[in-house]
Nucleic acid binder design. Structure first.
Length: 416
RNA sequence: GCGAAGUUGGUGAAGUGGUUAACACGCCGGAUUGUGGCUCCGGUAUGCAUGGGUUCGAUCCCCAUACUUCGCCCCA
């Protein structure tokens, strides 16, 4: 038997319906924020992610799906959405007429070569959005608000936004130096992973789970102390705006994010104070890094699969239509012919319609009616058809009546 | 990349180194020859993830592989 590849999954049945619902909610919300839908290719030149996401990140170093195509090109399946969207932004020269910000959202499959576990797969979906062209904290606030409202509209109320600021490049570099200086003499007291992180990515020591309660980490220099004046000021302004928007946030000075491109505000959406459902931040240098002009940007990505899992775990009511409108039962060949054109008629008039295609007995067809959870059932009978009559039965009240076959659609319109 | 546990029909699962692999749900058929959902009766795995090995004999023991679940790393 050929089985699915590790970390992939098929989407069907109730899960497919749940996802359709979530898509509907998110699409409608993005429309309100005036973000346009975008899809970028699943694969891109490997270089895009190496330069965009950052050569030193684990995501690029050991988690990408890379291959050489038949034209000897080095290709990578996208591990995240932002780099591709930035490539699109640059390639189409959308920076040329930035009278207003360029705002897009996406809902795309991503690929990372990881060990699957709860809420994590090799092929997974991220829903996210990006805003280019504004360096105003207003755009930070808009992005955070969009992320925040998305979860709330989906019924996840116990949401907190963790925010922090890495500051501009100058602030970030100063902070990095300060951290290395601080941790170097103490590093032996931290876990093995932290020791590896010291040179590679000292910011990550801050959100180490093993040493989370360690005084050394608790007393480490704080990002906010290393922000220069302008950076600090904009961070304070952002908090002011978030307060005004009534967004539930907390400042977490240990929040750093793994991708190299972030500066200024970084934020994470956490559920029940711990479980990360999504994250984002500002990336003012990224467009330039990828060969465009200096254009600021800010964005967010939701772990879509994780979010649906969280909704299930929190028993959020996800509306799923698990019933049909009409089931037609027949026995004789002429009744079957009637069923053929009636199903056609009903479906084209908007009714979800089923009939037997398995050669079932009448009893079997009745069982199907219940399995399909049909609201109405129609029993075709040659004797009645001779008078243009059909029997329609309300499957809930069990009341049935004979009506003229030509009145069927009107009858259903009136009763449903 | 590292670690732990798992994998028996459509489903939930019991079970044993040796004839026909429990039980339940579901499904199909009949009782009820065109109005079901209750009840009763009957049927329903060429086979215990895959490939090797040990054995007179393996679903059960051993090894490998795949996949699943959970954790680490990392991330969403």
């Amino acid at each position: 038997m050929i089985t699915k590849q590790k970390g992939t999954y098929d989407i069907y049945g109730d899960l497919a319906k749940k996802r359709a619902y979530v898509n509907e909610v998110l699409d409608a919300l993005c429309e309100k924020y005036n973000y346009g839908y975008i899809e970028t290719p699943v694969f891109e030149a490997s270089e895009l992610f190496h330069r965009g996401v950052g050569e030193s990140t684990d995501m690029v170093q050991k988690e990408t799906y890379d291959f050489i195509d038949r034209g000897d090109r080095s290709i990578t399946l996208r591990p995240e959405g932002t780099a591709g969207v930035v490539r699109w932004f640059i390639e189409n020269k959308l920076y040329g007429n930035l009278t207003d910000p360029v705002k897009v959202y996406y809902n795309m499959k991503m690929y990372r070569y990881e060990r699957p576990q709860s809420g994590r797969n090799r092929e997974f979906t991220q829903w996210g959005f990006e805003c280019f062209g504004s360096d105003d904290v207003m755009s930070d606030a808009e992005v955070i608000s969009l992320a925040y409202n998305a979860y709330r509209l989906l019924g996840l109320d116990n949401i907190t936004i963790k925010i922090n600021s890495l500051g501009d490049t100058e602030s970030r570099n100063n902070y990095r130096e300060a951290l290395i200086k601080y941790f170097k003499p103490k590093i032996k007291d931290l876990c093995e992973d932290c020791q590896n992180r010291l040179e590679k990515n000292p910011l990550r020591i801050l959100d180490c789970k093993v040493d989370a309660e360690n005084e050394i980490i608790k007393n480490a220099p704080k990002t906010l102390d290393y922000l220069n004046e302008a950076s600090l000021e904009r961070f304070n302004k952002l908090k002011e705006l978030l307060d005004l928007m009534d967004i539930n946030y907390v400042v977490d000075t240990n929040l750093v994010r793994g991708l190299d491109y972030y500066n200024h505000v970084v934020f994470e959406v956490v559920l029940d104070d711990s479980y990360a459902l999504g994250g984002g931040g500002r990336y003012n240098g990224l467009v330039e890094t990828l060969g465009g002009p200096s254009v600021p940007g800010v964005g967010f990505a939701m772990g879509y699969d994780r979010t649906i899992l969280a909704m299930e775990e929190h028993n959020v009511n996800i509306p799923i239509n698990d019933s049909i409108d009409v089931y037609l039962l027949y026995v004789s060949e002429t009744e079957k012919e009637t069923a053929a054109y009636l199903t056609q008629d009903l479906r084209m008039n908007g009714f979800i319609t089923e009939t037997d295609m398995m050669g079932k007995s009448l009893k079997g067809q009745f069982k199907s009616v219940d399995r399909f959870n049909s609201k109405y059932l129609i029993v075709l009978n040659d004797e009645k058809l001779a008078d243009n009559k059909i029997t329609i039965k309300d499957n809930k009240t069990k009341e049935e009546e004979d009506i003229n076959i030509n009145d069927l659609v009107d009858y259903l319109d009136m009763h449903m």
